[in-house]
Design a protein around this nucleic acid. Structure first.
Length: 326
DNA sequence: AAGACGCTCAACCGCCTAGGC
DNA sequence: TGCCTAGGCGGTTGAGCGTCT
């Protein structure tokens, strides 16, 4: 292990980059590619450490970077992904292809976090800071469900990122399926396959397999194999890998919650309005959100319900109203 | 006009992991 | 198997700028 000593070397410049340095770095990378970042500064005639060069390139000079203000959709994407992934800026950045993780991180810290606080929402947990009034509206169970779904989705995104790293050659197939319990809300569930074998195909095609979850896992020979969860509304079978107990329990809990508690009503209650975030964020009228008086209080509840709704609708891949994020 | 204050964001720091030897 | 290095990531800092008093 040990830390890279590159930036500790004396004589290397720090601080803001000059246009001349930018030009040198750009010219070198355009001609040779970045290659080894460690050796790049010397070759490019820069008195910088490789790390600094890499950062300057990835966060500023790269030609495919979109700069400037974040639009509403980007803001929503960041918030929703943050609710699912937490401070994993690089993972979030993969869903905003022209934005850098640094830019997203800065934007979150300087803008979005404050807005959520203003709305009375904890920017870390994405839950309302005062749970009690929402609980009385029947939202706490849905918040718990959201938390489960977030874990689930987080695992999926992690596996997705890992898979992308592992091999460009692997066939990657992602599809969503639905939990059909007679209610409208659907969890985002993804299926990965390498080469689908017959069994897998059957599973995919089986009309009773209404819930499926699978994850790539590297086998002892280094070739990714698939572990899989397949279930239905009436028969949830266990995943094949015991170490994925938490996923099992999450899935079971989630499904059980849906079936046992008539979740349709709860979700239906949540699924109000579509532009809640925009209203909430532009909502200077709601500056007093969280206060206990009359109309402001109602707005507060509405905003938080709609906030959760926005996350649900993000997780919900139904084609009718969701942007094609994934 | 100028000093105080707050905000933004580029850049750095320190830790972690993967991969090579 | 263990060490070393490069690259990547998230957290933090501080210079520069705008606004307020």
């Amino acid at each position: 292990m040990g830390r890279s000593p590159c930036c500790d070397k004396l004589g290397l410049k720090k601080g803001p980059w000059t246009p001349e340095e930018d030009q040198k770095l750009l010219a070198y990378i355009e001609e040779h590619g970045h290659g080894s970042w460690r050796s790049l500064p010397e070759k490019a005639g820069l008195h910088r450490c490789g790390k600094s060069c890499r950062l300057r390139w990835t966060n500023y000079l790269r030609p495919d970077i979109k700069r400037g203000k974040f639009n509403l959709q980007e803001e929503q994407t960041i918030i929703q992904l943050h609710a699912l992934l937490g401070n994993r800026w690089s993972a979030i950045a993969t869903h905003l292809p022209k934005r850098t993780d640094n830019e997203i991180k800065n934007y979150w810290n300087t803008h979005l976090k404050k807005r959520l606080v203003k709305m009375g929402i904890d920017p870390v947990t994405h839950k309302p800071k005062n749970e009690t009034p929402l609980s009385s509206l029947g939202l706490s169970k849905n918040a718990a469900t959201l938390s489960h779904m977030a874990q689930w989705e987080s695992a999926r995104l992690e596996a997705e990122a890992r898979l992308a790293r592992e091999s460009k050659l692997l066939h990657y197939q992602s599809k969503t399926s639905s939990i059909h319990h007679g209610f409208t809300h659907k969890a985002l569930i993804t299926n990965w396959t390498t080469k689908p074998n017959e069994d897998q195909q059957q599973q995919l095609e089986s009309p009773t397999s209404t819930v499926s979850f699978s994850e790539m896992k590297e086998s002892s020979n280094g070739i990714p194999t698939k572990i899989e969860f397949v279930g239905s509304s009436t028969d949830l079978t266990l995943m094949k890998e015991p170490e994925n107990d938490w996923i099992n329990s999450t899935i079971h809990e989630f499904a059980a919650t849906q079936m046992a508690e008539g979740i349709e009503e709860g979700f239906t209650g949540l699924l109000l309005g579509g532009d809640s975030l925009e209203r909430s964020f532009s909502g200077d009228k709601n500056e007093t959100a969280g206060e206990s008086s009359g109309g402001d209080c109602n707005n507060y509840y509405e905003d938080n319900k709609n906030y959760l709704d926005s996350i649900f609708s993000f997780v919900d891949p139904s084609p009718s109203d969701s942007p094609p994020m994934f």
